[in-house]
């Protein structure tokens, strides 16, 4: 009786059949240490042998914000709202955009970049894009601190920031960050799966992300775009990243306006994209090593 049961009791089966969603959460949990170690590797190896080291985490958004302020606000005179310094406005936009875009670009070459490892050893592949999202979350945290520091500077040492103040809905910020991560991760997983077969997409990603930034209200408020270019405004308005960035700026600086409808819109789109990404990624996982 006992032996009979044991003989049918296979631990697992390797077969060509693919279920639509074949996610083994228990297995991913078993590999949680690997996730942690990948994150650690990403963080400590990026700026090894550089003089400024982790300071680069600050320098990049700071300088981008300075340039944006000079070009878009001083030169092109895009208004950022009464009583809100253009620099803070840009820094908030760039911080949130950066998190999304680093998640997207970091995960979109998962299969190609890890070909060597994936070809030699098995572990749940989802760990790799997940680790990108987590290590970027740490960088995002650091950059968020920079935003806080500059906010404090503007409030206490200048009188330019009289209208800039965090709103109570900032309590929803963790969810917004989750949406950003899921959105980048989902899109990244879809792209990484498709690039294993169709390499053209890699070129699309690198400049597509740049184009998308201009369409995501990073350096201008959505309201200003609507008044100046109403015929194109639907592109920006229905872009979920616009919604996320506008919400982020509202929560942290009180620029623009907030609606639960927008918040839900961003959430639903992110979750759908994430699930879609997961399905496609899972399908690719098994056979990619033969097509990459």
């Amino acid at each position: 009786m006992n032996t009979k049961r044991a003989s049918q009791d296979w631990l697992y089966t390797i077969s060509p059949k693919r279920k639509l969603i074949d996610l083994n959460f228990k297995e991913i949990w078993r590999y949680r240490d690997l996730l942690f170690l990948f994150v650690k590797r990403d963080i400590i190896t990026v700026y090894k042998q550089t003089i400024l080291g982790p300071l680069w985490f600050f320098i990049q958004p700071l300088f981008t914000s300075i340039i944006f302020t000079l070009i878009f606000n001083k030169l092109a005179a895009i208004p950022t709202g009464e009583g809100v310094p253009a620099f803070l406005f840009n820094l908030a936009g760039i911080t949130s955009w950066n998190y999304f875009s680093t998640c997207l670009t970091g995960t979109s070459n998962t299969f190609k970049a890890n070909q060597g490892v994936f070809g030699k050893v098995y572990f749940p592949r989802v760990i790799t894009p997940l680790s990108v999202v987590f290590s970027n979350l740490l960088k995002f945290g650091i950059q968020l601190l920079v935003l806080v520091v500059f906010y404090i500077y503007y409030v206490f040492f200048t009188d330019e920031a009289e209208n800039a103040a965090p709103q109570t809905v900032i309590l929803l910020l963790p969810f917004l960050i989750l949406f950003m991560g899921l959105f980048g991760l989902g899109l990244g997983m879809i792209l990484s799966s498709l690039t294993t077969k169709y390499r053209d997409l890699t070129f699309l990603v690198s400049f597509g992300v740049q184009l998308l930034m201009y369409g995501s209200a990073v350096m201008y408020p959505l309201s200003y775009f609507k008044t100046r270019l109403p015929e194109y405004s639907w592109i920006v308005e229905y872009n979920p990243m616009t919604t996320i960035i506008e919400l982020f700026r509202y929560m942290t600086l009180g620029v623009g306006n907030f609606s639960f409808y927008n918040f839900l819109y961003a959430g639903v789109i992110s979750i759908i994209l994430f699930l879609l990404g997961l399905i496609i990624f899972n399908k690719t996982e098994k056979s990619f090593i033969d097509t990459v």
Binding site: L11, Y12, P16, G119, K286, S287, I289
Partner: peptide, 19 residues
């Protein structure tokens, strides 16, 4: 590679009782 789940088989299956 098939045994170690790096790539899937085209047909057939492998059953195992251990990691």
């Amino acid at each position: 590679k098939i045994l170690s789940k790096v790539t899937g088989p085209t047909t057939g299956e492998i059953k195992t009782r251990g990691r």
